[in-house]
Design a protein around this nucleic acid. Structure first.
Lengths: 241, 241
DNA sequence: CGGTCTATTGACTGGCGTCAAGCACCGTGG
DNA sequence: CCACGGTGCTTGACGCCAGTCAATAGACCG
């Protein structure tokens, strides 16, 4: 996947785009770059002149503490305009890194601006994408603060599945998720050892399988019930915006 | 405080506003409502036709789980356009509640739209506000996932102090923060009992005082160092946006 | 003065981190 | 072909941090 199609699809899940708007997006110049696992896509502290969107694979936002500890604050799937933030924030408060091999497209800020000036609707749609990011982050905060580890893990799997299915990157109830248990710990705020034990528990309960970077949900209903997962916050419905 | 001045000040901390832009903001119709402690300002699941901004006091975003557990995912101070999100998200994924007594101004979505259509710059500034919210939420995720409880508490106090000072609602190193230890626990993802013990520890270390809803930072440098607090993510600097 | 809400304290339990060792898989090179 | 090292997964032992339960104290209020 080396063009902007995934982003168009992501937008079209939330509202109808006019042909003119689609053309505007497709006309954005795209610097396509592929990364292998665990590479830096955008650096914390930098002042990027471009924003990037995920075209293939997974990216994550990552923050680091003094003692080398790391927290992953978001995971991004194909079609996510990950780094739209830097267009307005100017200076990065976090890094964007690859999870497994990942292809992204960089768009100059000047072109982001041109598109938003050419189309009020696309301006709102880009804004919407960052606001949905915020909703996902709120869900993560609640997971970290008040859900049990089992619920948190289940919630993460449900969320990823629904987001991937929405952009057509899931087959049945299975999806690829090429990350290590250490990275999973950095998402959940847990040690690697504990991630391992909890994964075994969920597997043991017959809720999911997780082998060779492939996640399979055995019973979505039960998993969602355990997680108290409600997909409303993903705004995956058509609505005039 | 019953007019939109705090919001203007918040914006002006990030970029220069033209006189025309200031007039546009001040012309927005404002339905001012005051709340006592712990009232619902916007309800989870609702579809608001207005967005609200905090004019006086504190508001919080709040999510609830089945067993009655609650997580506060954000705290908002005067000048924050809290619920700009609902303009694009349409359906609330969380509630907005008052922390202590609080005055907010509701602005119809139609007027938000009118302002953003009248001024490209204000459109970007409003967008910026939601993106800064996202940056704060990322910091909270990292606090919850990877900071110790002491660091988390210290980080929260540093963040609140800097945000309040930025809008001129702090006197010296002291600020009002009218919340219970239970609410504090709902921010930090902790039990009330544990919040109490940790507060005592920070007081004992001579880093801060917290009495009768008044927080005083004894030594900001040491507190910030403990918390690994870096205010970059608050975007409190002038920059053309 | 009793009633309610909040802060505080103690005792006990359990979840999660740390340390350490062993195992499985894979690509490399002798 | 097999030895080897690297990386990631798995398991056990042990200790501490934080939750729960319960009781007390203090503050505010009708």
């Amino acid at each position: 996947m080396t063009d902007i199609t995934p982003l168009v699809r992501t937008l079209q899940r939330r509202d109808v785009l006019s042909p003119a708007d689609i053309t505007l997006i497709q006309a954005m110049p795209l610097r396509v770059v592929s990364f292998s696992a665990d590479q830096e896509i955008v650096s914390e502290g930098s002042r990027p002149a471009e924003s990037c969107a995920v075209l293939y694979g997974f990216a994550a936002r990552s923050q680091y503490l003094r003692e080398g500890q790391r927290q992953i604050t978001a995971v991004h799937v194909p079609g996510d305009f990950v780094d739209l933030h830097s267009y307005l924030l100017k200076k990065m408060d976090h890094s964007v890194v690859s999870l497994g091999s990942c292809t992204v497209g960089y768009v100059p800020h000047a072109d982001v601006r041109a598109v938003t000036q050419a189309s009020q609707h696309l301006a709102r749609m880009f804004w919407l994408l960052t606001v949905i990011d915020g909703a996902i982050q709120r869900a993560w905060i609640t997971c970290l603060g008040r859900r049990s580890v089992d619920q948190h893990l289940a919630h993460l799997v449900c969320e990823l599945y629904v987001r991937l299915a929405a952009v057509g990157v899931a087959s049945g109830l299975t999806f690829d998720f090429p990350i290590t248990q250490q990275e999973l710990g950095d998402m959940l705020g847990l040690s690697t050892v504990h991630v391992n034990r909890r994964l075994q528990k969920l597997r043991g309960l017959g809720l999911l399988q997780w082998q060779n970077s492939k996640v399979t949900i055995v019973n979505f209903e039960r998993l969602a019930d355990l997680a108290e997962f409600d997909e409303t916050y993903l705004s995956l419905h058509m609505e005039p915006r």
